[in-house]
Amino acid sequence: MSSSTPVWPAGHDRRVLAEVDSTNAEAARIAATLAGPTWILALRQTAGRGRRGRAWNDPPGNFAATLAIPSGAAPAQAALRSFVAALALADALTQATARPEAISLKWPNDVLLNGAKVAGILLETTGQGGTPGPLAIGIGVNLSHAPDPGTLEPEAKAPTSVLSATGAAIDPESFLDLLAPAFARWEATLRQHGFAPLRRAFLDRAARFGEPITARTLRETLTGTFTDIDETGALVLTTAKGPVAVQAADIFF
C-alpha cells in the first residue's frame, strides 16, 4: 500500500463497530440522528446483503461498510452514486495494490480484480411517497478472504480477494482511509460537473466494453455488444434489433 494516506474528507463522520447485522440496516436505524455523511464500518457483519436480497459473506478481515447520506436525492440521482462508489473503489484498490491494470468495473455494481469479483455495491433508500429519503451506499470488499465458489449461485462471477490475487495485505480501517477520500473526490466531481466525467472514467475501466455480454432483467434476457453507458447510467447494448438501454440487470459474460 502507498505510504501516503489521503486526508479524511471534511464533514464526514465515521463509526467503527465490532459487530453488526448489516451496515446498511444500521444506516437505516440511525439515519435520523446523523448530522452529515457518515461511514459505518463493521469489523464483523453477520447478515450482509447483496442485490435482490442475496446473502453477502463477510469473514473477519474483509471490508463491510456503508456510507449513510442523510439528505435524500431523487431516485435517478441517487442511482448515480453506484458509479461514484465503483470509481472510488477502483482508486482505493489501485492505492492498496499498485495494480491499476488488474482492476475493472462490471456494470452496474461490481469491481473485478484479474477478472474475478472482489467487491460489490448495494444502494438502498428509505424514501416514501415520492419523497427522497436517506441513502445508504453499502460496499463489501474481499480484502483477505474470498467466498467458497460452491456457496454462490451457479452463474455467479468467480470470486477473489485482494490478498490472494495481489499479495497486498490491508485491514478494513486502513482501506476505509483510502476509500472515503476517493469517494468524496468523485462525489464532488458529480456535483460540480454532472455525470459525464464519471461516465467517461467508468467506460475507461469497464469490463467487456465493446464485447458481447448478456443482460438478464426481471422480464427478459438480452444479448448484445456492450457499446455505451447513456447519460442516465443505463447500459447500452447493440442487439440484432438495434441499441437497447438497460436500466437494471444482472450481467453475464
Rank of each mutant, 00 (worst) to 15 (best):
128 Q>V: 14
130 G>M: 00
119 A>V: 04
54 R>Q: 15
66 T>V: 11
109 N>Y: 10
97 T>Q: 02
32 A>V: 06
95 Q>S: 06
36 G>E: 11
68 A>P: 13
94 T>V: 02
112 L>K: 14
124 E>I: 01
57 N>M: 13
93 L>N: 13
123 L>R: 04
116 A>L: 08
59 P>T: 02
55 A>K: 14
28 A>M: 06
42 A>W: 00
104 S>H: 13
118 V>R: 03
102 A>K: 09
80 L>A: 00
68 A>M: 09
64 A>C: 11
105 L>A: 03
51 R>H: 04
131 T>A: 15
53 G>A: 10
36 G>L: 11
72 G>K: 06
32 A>W: 08
115 G>Y: 08
46 T>L: 13
60 P>L: 05
105 L>I: 09
78 A>Y: 08
102 A>W: 12
110 D>H: 10
60 P>C: 04
70 P>S: 05
42 A>V: 03
33 T>Q: 13
109 N>A: 10
79 A>W: 10
122 L>G: 00
94 T>K: 01
54 R>H: 15
76 A>T: 04
84 V>N: 07
101 E>H: 04
119 A>I: 01
63 F>H: 05
100 P>K: 07
28 A>N: 00
87 L>W: 06
90 A>M: 12
106 K>Y: 02
101 E>I: 02
100 P>V: 05
128 Q>T: 15
111 V>D: 10
105 L>W: 01
81 R>H: 14
105 L>F: 01
49 R>V: 04
44 R>Y: 04
34 L>Q: 05
67 L>H: 11
57 N>P: 02
89 L>E: 05
81 R>P: 00
132 P>I: 12
123 L>Q: 12
108 P>D: 01
109 N>P: 08
39 W>L: 14
44 R>G: 03
98 A>H: 10
122 L>M: 02
84 V>Q: 09
75 P>K: 02
55 A>Y: 02
80 L>C: 08
79 A>Q: 11
45 Q>E: 14
107 W>F: 12
83 F>E: 02
97 T>Y: 01
47 A>C: 11
77 Q>R: 14
91 D>W: 00
96 A>S: 09
119 A>C: 03
96 A>F: 05
67 L>S: 10
41 L>R: 07
39 W>P: 05
94 T>N: 08
29 R>W: 06
34 L>P: 02
30 I>H: 04
83 F>W: 12
61 G>F: 01
66 T>K: 10
130 G>S: 00
94 T>W: 01
86 A>Y: 10
89 L>C: 09
103 I>F: 05
98 A>N: 13
79 A>H: 04
62 N>R: 08
38 T>D: 10
126 T>N: 13
106 K>C: 04
33 T>Y: 04
57 N>E: 15
67 L>M: 13
50 G>V: 06
72 G>Q: 06
68 A>V: 11
120 G>H: 10
61 G>K: 07
123 L>P: 07
113 L>H: 07
55 A>V: 13
103 I>D: 01
45 Q>K: 11
40 I>G: 02
83 F>Y: 07
98 A>Y: 02
29 R>C: 08
111 V>C: 14
107 W>E: 12
96 A>L: 04
51 R>K: 08
100 P>G: 05
125 T>E: 15
